[in-house]
Design a binder for these strands. Structure first.
Length: 484
RNA sequence: GGCGCCGUGGCCAAGUGGUAAGGCAGAGGACUGCAAAUCCUCGAUCCCCGGUUCGAAUCCGGGCGGCGCCUCCA
């Protein structure tokens, strides 16, 4: 099945054809690291990861780069307030974000370039734009992009800036540009910039790069002149990505991006958790509160990336249960009694059908909810078959089911993350098994109140017992249930 | 004001012309010492009104309601 993607540039679904067959160059707009990333940011990062995983799953040789913006107004202000340089200030946030990304099963990008490490490249890019007449210098040593020099300006966001803004006065605005619609490539230094170590020498004067410039420079340096896919949040369409196009295409004369993908923002379903209300919910907060990372990942994947996602406690609970259902099924198949002489049960065939549906959904503009539907339909069918067959199937069928589940999880990463967060060390394992032994004794002597007490004791630690004719098995159901 | 999006069972959420995937929650049943897990059964006039069509949640028009972007927020 051929992948089709919704390209923001054309506002339509297009078959994915990378510039070079079998290879995919992807650049994702990462966070500004002046604070902890919140769940909304991570909706994007998890989606980026999905793109990354999907392309690798389909066999592409993927070059995946996500930037970390470590210089901008907020960063400088915050660093100065704490008496730090921007790198001292931002680095802990960069580390935190990468750790949280690990916790959520986000595959590492090939590179995480910091803007401040690419100032030379950015200066070179500005020089090219000046040479080509796309940019101009102002008296204070700033450089602006001249929008009128790039007739296609507005093609991504479909804005007609002529009418919208022309009448406005060139304001008292910070750097004195010719036209309000122009955007900064280079901002002349201010005292606080120097204080924070955010000032670099350039041919036209000391200053710091404009926001948009870094992405053009870093994607050019790390991926190439033409990106196959550029990812970002919906808010970045304008002006950020519009400006990137102007800069990059203005400088190289080549198409900047073949497919633009934008992730819709999430909406907080219950509490007012949005950052703008000063009530940030960071991933760090959630993990510290005991939210299961696999549940979080599931919820962030539960809506199509171009739809608004309702994020909230209730959804997280539901996601946790859904993930557990998946784990239980996988474990059940792993423990199934394989019997070479057993008749074909049909579970292998159902797995095959599910994989096909899954692939079809993902190929259709990365429809993860559709893919999850295929997966969970199969879980139901599979459980039904195993019930009817008494958990006895031919080995090749059991293997095939596990292969299919594993294959889907290469894209979804749910079992993978659940595995990370549910590990139990050997000592605890022994303790659990001892307790189960005690409980077995109690049950044999019909001392059910004692047996139930032991079961409750384990449950408080997230260990759930399941009795069956073959004995008692236990499982770790992840982090503690949510409070409040 | 400009551009754009959305409104599917209690909640979340696929489906964009052929008569409604999936998850969570809920009810009943099977299994269990009781549970847990699992299975079976049950639940949707797809916001409203018109229109196009043999046929619409899906296309068109109107209405009501919610939301995003319009210079540094993923």
């Amino acid at each position: 099945m051929r992948l089709r993607l919704f390209n923001t540039l054309t506002r339509s679904l297009e078959p994915f054809e990378p510039l070079e067959h079998g290879r995919a160059g992807v650049y994702a707009c990462g966070p500004t690291i002046y604070d902890h990333a919140h769940v909304g940011n991570f909706r994007s990062f998890v989606f980026y990861d999905l793109v990354h995983r999907y392309l690798e799953w389909k066999g592409y040789d993927v070059r995946f780069v996500m930037n970390l913006t470590d210089v901008d107004d907020k960063t400088i202000r915050a660093a100065v307030a704490e008496g730090k340089t921007i790198s001292e200030y931002t680095e802990p946030f960069a580390q935190a974000i990468l750790e949280e990304a690990d916790a959520l099963g986000i595959r590492r990008a090939d590179r995480y370039p910091r803007a401040t490490a690419y100032v030379d490249e950015m200066i070179a890019l500005v020089e090219r734009l000046l040479e080509k007449g796309h940019a101009y210098r102002t008296d204070d040593g700033s450089v602006f992009f001249d929008i009128t020099s790039f007739p296609e300006y507005g093609k991504l966001s479909r804005k007609n800036l002529d009418e919208a803004r022309r009448g406005e006065r060139v304001s008292e605005d910070e750097y004195g540009k010719d036209d309000v619609r122009d955007f900064a490539l280079w901002k002349a230094s201010k005292p606080e910039d120097r204080e924070a170590g955010a000032a670099w020498p350039a041919p036209w004067g000391e200053g710091r790069p404009g926001w948009h410039l870094e992405c053009s420079a870093m994607s050019l340096a790390e991926v190439g002149e033409t990106l196959d896919i550029h990812l970002g949040g919906e808010d970045l369409v304008f002006p950020h990505h519009e400006d990137e196009i102007a800069q990059s295409e203005g400088a190289t004369g080549k198409p900047f991006v073949r497919y633009w993908l934008h992730v819709r923002h999430l909406r907080f379903a219950d509490e007012k958790m949005s950052k703008s209300r000063g009530n940030t919910v960071t991933v760090q907060d959630l993990l510290e509160q005991g939210v299961d990372p696999a549940a979080l990942r599931h919820q962030l994947l539960s809506a199509h990336y171009r739809s608004e996602l309702a994020f909230g406690r209730e959804g997280l609970e539901g996601s946790g249960r859904a993930v557990q259902r998946l784990i239980d099924f996988r474990d059940r198949v792993e423990e199934v009694h394989t019997d070479p002489s057993a008749a074909i049960s049909g579970i292998g065939g159902k797995a095959e059908e599910a994989l096909e549906r899954f692939e079809g959904a993902l190929a259709d503009d990365l429809n993860v909810p559709g893919g999850l539907g295929a997966l969970f339909s199969f879980v139901s069918e599979g459980n039904g078959i195993l019930d009817r067959k008494g958990d006895r199937v031919p080995p090749e069928e059991a293997e095939r089911v596990l292969e299919v589940l594993g294959s889907m999880d290469e894209v979804l990463g749910l079992l993978e993350v659940a595995g990370q967060s549910r590990t139990v060390d050997a000592e605890t394992r022994h303790w659990i098994e001892d307790r189960i032994g005690e409980r077995e004794e109690a049950r044999r002597s019909k001392d059910f109140s004692r047996a139930d007490a032991i079961r409750d004791e384990l449950a408080e630690r997230g260990i759930v017992l399941e009795d069956s004719s073959r004995g008692t098995r236990w499982k770790h159901v992840g982090t503690r249930p949510l409070v409040g």
